[in-house]
Design a protein around this nucleic acid. Structure first.
Length: 452
RNA sequence: GCGCCGUUGGUGAAGUGGUUAACACGCUGGUUUGUGGCACCAGUAUGCAAGAGUUCGAUCCUCUUACGACGCCCCA
């Protein structure tokens, strides 16, 4: 038996419809915010992700899928979206365009790690970046944009945590102070943190073992080490967030792992029961140093990324009802070959007329065909009958009320149009999405109606 | 990379070192040769993740591998 690769998933059926729906919401929202879609390769040169420079060396231990191709090139499957976007920005000389460049991506990423709750080896992330502006409004827009996508999808319980690392000078100073603070407390830290003290002291604040200890609670906070410029900048971000009516909390323990981050960093978490250890839906921050580090012009950038898998989990746990079409409009049943031919013909006609139509393929008993119609949630069913067909008639039954009408075959499109397209309101009830009445990007059936 | 627990039909699962692997759901057919969802009857794993070992004999014991769940590391 060939099994799928560790940490990879097949997504199909209802779940696949949820994924497609999420994609459609992302596309609609990003369009309104005027971000353009960008597709970069899944494979990149290994050194794009394993740069090994900066203040920590653990960057090279990143858990990526690396291989050497037939030409001897060192290749890495992209573990995240930002580096590829920045590489593309530089390579295509987008810095010559009108800045800032606002882009979004949505695609598969690979991480060579042990799968566990909320963490797969193959994952899908969407994200957006603003390249070429250092204005605090960009920081606020990215955060509010992320929040708005979650809201549009119907997610209610989300929490925004923000922090500022300050500029490089502030950040370095903070790092020094942190090491100075923890050194005397070495013995009280867990073994992992002792190592982190050397490699990446900022991450001690994230430690799961020691997180409740007073040593960590009383550790120096990034915000106390911001120089005046950085502090002003962070205040400006908060001001814009207030203007955009984004609720947030300042959480000094949000540091993000990578050393190219500076100034604003943030995470958005789902506050849903049952999420386990990984309840962060997405996060991001400002990375003003990355573009230059990759050999491009010194360009300030900020971005956000969100794992779609976790998003789907959150939507399910919150029992958000999504406008996903799972019903067929009409199911055609038949017994003999003449009727089967007609079923084939009629289903094509009606499909091309815009209805969702299905029929029997395996010549099963009528009983089995009725069951099939129910499994497919057929709104209407029709048992084709040679005699009826010759009389230019068809019996159509409402599969819910069991009311049956005998109508002329010529009138079937008109009949279905009236029955199906006028019953949408009552079938789907009131729309519960927050977006209703406010935005026209909503894909709810109610809104589709209005659009028509 | 480390730790811990798992893997039995389409699904949920019971079970045992010894020739037919329970039960339920589902599915298919029939009772009812063309208007169902109920009821009843029948069928539905040459098979217990894969491989190796112990044994007269392994789904069951041992080992290895693969995959799954959860946690650590890492976190983009």
């Amino acid at each position: 038996m060939i099994q799928r690769q560790k940490g990879c998933n097949d997504i199909y059926g209802r779940e696949a419809k949820i994924w497609k729906y999420i994609d459609s919401v992302i596309d609609a929202v990003m369009e309104k915010y005027n971000y353009t879609y960008i597709r970069t390769p899944l494979i990149e040169a290994t050194e794009l992700f394993h740069r090994g420079i900066g203040e920590s060396t653990d960057i090279v231990t990143k858990e990526t899928y690396d291989f050497v191709d037939r030409g001897g090139r060192n290749i890495t499957l992209r573990p995240e979206g930002t580096a590829g976007v920045v590489r593309s920005f530089i390579e295509n000389k987008m810095y010559g365009d009108n800045l800032p460049v606002k882009v979004y991506y949505n695609g598969t990423m690979y991480r060579y790690e042990r799968p566990q709750s909320g963490r797969d080896r193959e994952l899908t992330q969407f994200g957006m970046e603003i390249l070429g502006s250092d204005d605090p409004l960009c920081d606020a827009e990215i955060i509010s944009l992320a929040v708005n996508i979650y809201k549009m999808l119907g997610l209610k319980e989300i929490k925004v945590n923000i922090n500022s690392l300050g500029d490089n000078a502030s950040r370095l100073k903070y790092r020094e102070e942190l090491v100075k603070y923890f050194k005397p407390h070495m013995d009280e830290l867990c073994s992992d943190c002792k190592e982190r003290l050397e490699k990446n002291p900022l991450r001690i604040l994230d430690c799961k073992v020691d997180c409740d200890s007073d040593i960590i609670k009383n550790a120096p906070k990034t915000l106390n080490f911001l120089n005046e410029e950085s502090r002003d900048r962070f205040e400006k971000v908060q001001e814009y967030l207030d203007v955009l009516e984004v609720k947030y909390e300042i959480n000094p323990n949000i540091v993000r792992g990578l050393d190219y981050y500076n100034h604003t960093v943030f995470e958005i978490e789902a506050k849903v029961d049952g999420f386990g250890a990984n309840n962060v839906l997405g996060g991001g921050g400002r990375y003003n140093g990355l573009c230059k580090e990759l050999g491009g012009p010194d360009t300030p950038c900020i971005g956000f990324a969100c794992g779609i898998g976790r998003l789907v989990t959150a939507l399910e746990l919150e029992k958000v009802s999504l406008p996903i079409v799972e019903d067929v409009d009409l199911f055609l049943l038949y017994v003999n070959e003449e009727e089967k031919n007609y079923a084939a013909y009629l289903s094509q006609e009606l499909r091309l007329a815009g209805f969702i139509v299905d029929t029997e393929y395996n010549n099963r008993s009528l009983k089995a065909q009725f069951k099939q119609a129910d499994r497919l949630n057929a709104k209407y069913i029709a048992v084709l009958n040679s005699e009826d067909i010759n009389n230019n008639e068809i019996k159509i039954k409402n599969n819910k009320t069991k009311e049956e009408d005998i109508i002329s075959l010529d009138a079937i499109i008109y009949y279905l149009d009236e029955k199906i397209n006028t019953n949408i309101e009552e079938d789907y009830g009131e729309c519960s999405h927050e977006c209703c009445g406010n935005h026209d990007g909503c894909k709810c059936h109610n809104h589709e109606e209005e659009d028509l």
